[in-house]
Amino acid sequence: MTEYALEVENLRKSFGGQVAVDGVSFSLPPGGSLAVVGESGSGKTTTARMLVGLERPDAGRIRVGGRDRSAAARGRATRLSRARELQMVFQDPYLSLDPRVSVAQCVEEPLRLHFAMSPRERRARRDELLARVGLGGREADALPRRLSGGQRQRVALARALATEPKVLILDEATAALDVSIQAQILDLLAEIRRESGVGYVFVTHNLALVRHVADDVLVLHQGRVVESGPSSRVLTAPEHPYTRLLLHSVPRPGWDPARIAADRRALATESKESS
């Protein structure tokens, strides 16, 4: 049996009476790249939060490197080892970095938590990580407010890579960036995956992005997986009407918003009748 970097089985979560995630399953091979696609309310963010332990699933299993992490962590050692294996990069680099902590300290903190290193080793590793994401000594001494959005997201990435995780969850990690910067970060992510063999879960609403960053794609709609498969197949020959609607909604020359609006209404009536 191949061991997956990340394996998710029948994940379920409701808030109040509202089912947010309903029977979601997928797996990610070591060094693989999976995109979880959906709109607001699709359950993609709740899924990501369950993966990193920010929400507890009502039912289902999450295994990282074969180890189950569905139950609450008991004790500091378990919490730390779980955190080491799986890290997250958030959407908004203006909110995800502590404004009072310098870039150097920000990257050193996970090193201090997870590894027994001398201060000198730690500084060396920190500089290596910052160099890996294209930041130098000048940025290391700076506070986040001195940095641009793209630079901040590089810091968040260096911090996440510090624990040498098996899997990185990227929750709309490039959505807040300018297009010309987004492409730089995507390049960097591809390079890092090639070199280190870390696996990615891209949580995104941007289908055009999926084509260029993910081997496989999972389409979520109202908490359920409506379609999944290799991204090249799903994007060129989608089988589910919702996937087709998402694809047509991407603006491009010859785009017909009026038709998309009509398709969307038809799909909404259909799913109302079937439920």
Partner: peptide, 20 residues
Amino acid sequence: LAATPRLESDRPPRGVPGRP
């Protein structure tokens, strides 16, 4: 244009060096 990821193209998006 080159930096924008595109559905209908295999060419990966290319970033513009530096920042706006």
